[in-house]
């Protein structure tokens, strides 16, 4: 395999690792479940996408096709489960924080959402 392709592969994997970490940081930092969904979506789309895309260059053809299959499956199911989660949270009585109230909550480090139903 060419060195350029090898470099591209590593760049993709490292970028994917970066986005995965940032997504995880977002899950910890953001104030309520609705905003955390966006951070989780980041891990699901770009984190998984870039890492699996980078791994594609490391194996033979069949391996690459299988990796792409996993990726396609992840990208089909992630929005569905995110949407189900949002609907369930709304149904369960949670209301998203809006506007600058969310920022104040972050600054004061107060628990932003209700306790377990």
């Amino acid at each position: 395999m060419g060195t350029a392709l090898q470099l591209l592969s590593w760049a993709l994997i490292l970028a994917g690792a970066f986005f995965t970490l940032v997504g995880a940081l977002g899950i910890l930092r953001l104030p309520d479940v609705f905003t955390r969904m966006h951070a989780a979506g980041m891990t699901d789309t770009m984190g998984a996408g870039l890492i699996l895309g980078g791994l594609c260059f490391q194996g033979d053809g069949i391996t690459a096709v299988r990796l792409l299959l996993i990726l396609v499956f992840l990208w089909f199911t992630c929005p569905v489960s995110t949407h189900a989660l949002a609907r369930a949270a709304l149904q369960g009585g949670l209301r998203p924080l809006t506007g600058t109230a969310a920022q104040r909550d972050v600054a004061a480090q107060t628990p932003a959402s209700r306790q377990d139903p």
Partner: peptide, 27 residues
Amino acid sequence: LVWDILRCNVQVARTILSPKLRIDPAI
């Protein structure tokens, strides 16, 4: 769609990494 996802990912990553966490959630 993939290009758009990439663009938005960079934007959200910037938001999360900014120390003051400038979010403005809205419906």
